[in-house]
């Protein structure tokens, strides 16, 4: 017999590159946290949200049943582990709150194909065929293994699933689990979902439009071009942009792929995000921006910081000291 299925929306992330809380972004006319919570509630016996201790009383989060991270700072695996410990007999359908294209069909498909004998049932990424840990069912048997994994200093839930007996399913819709980390990606996803872009005054209340919103995403996702494509188009506007001179230094893998340790570029890129995209077109960089950090003038920086002429930029691949 399989364990009861509980739901958990992961909403404890720092949203550093978005520069605003990803849980409140409204793709469907209300905060994505609400939206994801409701989708989960339809297929789960009980649903919770995952928060860091310091987020418990935030307005967006206070209204939901919460499970508090026991090891804040460890990333999403802290939320998964806290849930498995809080209700050790339940299985957990874990969902991140930055998946605007998630639909009830995707969740229903996962539940229908769940194998409770495995550590987890997850989708295979449409991009690289590796498991997607943040839209997956984690069985009670995962609890001890996740704890041991974290105690050994590891934190990557994806790598945990790679090395487990998780059942992997093909995604019915290739981009259903595309996630959104930056303002550009948010704009693109909003456009793809045919929602108006939020303005400073945009209304996050429910406004009773939940019903029409809930039928929209599947259709919109099927009809629209990919977010990346839209993002590219968006930048075509404002053709006569000023250019600035930047010095870029490369280290490790990026140095080898660029074939140089440094270069100077004249660019119209306004942020590190735009600059990296530009450099990716010139050099065979395989690492995506989500795998990198960025430093401006030898200090860690945000991907949306405005670049100034004369800045020295370093893109930092995953580090490996020690």
């Amino acid at each position: 017999m399989s364990a009861a299925l509980f739901g958990l929306v992961l909403a404890g992330g720092a949203s550093t590159r978005m520069q605003r809380d990803k849980a409140v972004l409204a793709y469907h006319g209300r905060p994505q946290l609400d939206w994801a919570y409701e989708l989960l509630s339809e297929v789960c016996a009980a649903t919770f949200i995952s928060v860091r201790p310091d987020q418990r009383n935030e307005a967006t989060r206070a209204q939901f049943p919460q499970i508090v991270d026991r090891q804040p700072g460890a990333g999403p695996i802290a939320g998964i582990s806290a849930a498995l410990q809080e209700h050790p007999k339940a299985a957990w359908l874990i969902v991140a709150c930055d998946l605007p294209f998630l639909t009830r069909e995707i969740l229903q498909h996962l539940v229908a194909h769940r194998d409770p004998q495995r550590v987890a049932t997850a989708y295979r990424s449409a991009h690289d065929s590796l498991p997607e840990p943040l839209c997956a069912i984690w069985e009670p048997v995962a609890r001890e293994a996740v704890l041991a994994y974290m105690q050994s200093g590891k934190q990557c839930p994806r790598k945990f699933l790679i090395n487990s007996n998780a059942l992997l399913l093909d995604l019915p819709d290739a981009r259903a689990l595309d996630n959104v980390n930056t303002v550009d990606e948010f704009s693109a996803a909003s456009a793809a979902l045919q929602n108006p872009l939020p303005r400073a005054s945009h209304d996050l209340s429910h406004k009773g439009n939940g019903e029409e919103a809930s039928s929209a995403p599947a259709k919109a996702a099927a009809l629209s071009p990919s977010p990346a494509h839209l993002a590219g188009e968006g930048r075509g506007e404002g053709a006569a942009k000023r250019t600035i001179a930047l010095r870029i230094q490369y280290y490790a893998l990026l140095r080898e792929q660029a074939g140089r340790s440094e270069e100077t570029v004249d660019t119209s890129a306004g942020t590190p995000t735009e600059l990296y995209r530009e450099l990716q077109a010139r050099h065979p960089f395989k690492l995506g921006p989500e795998q990198l950090k960025v430093a401006i003038n030898a200090e860690f920086s945000d991907w949306n910081t405005a670049l100034r002429s004369g800045d020295t930029i370093v893109f930092i691949p995953p580090v490996a000291g020690g």
Binding site: G13, A14, S15, T16, R17, A74, G75, P76, I77, A96, D98, S125, H127, D128, L130, P133, L134, S152, G153, K154, Q155, C156, P157, R158, K159, I162, N179, N181, A252, L253, K286, L287, G288, E290, Q291, P317, P318, V319, A320, G322
Partner: peptide
């Protein structure tokens, strides 16, 4: 090969990527 997270971070989620690779 550079010791990093190429494989597991490919199109990953935004978690501050922290991995133990020994040494």
């Amino acid at each position: 090969g550079w010791v990093n997270c190429e494989r597991c971070a490919a199109h990953g989620y935004e978690h501050d990527h922290v991995h133990e690779h020994g040494h």
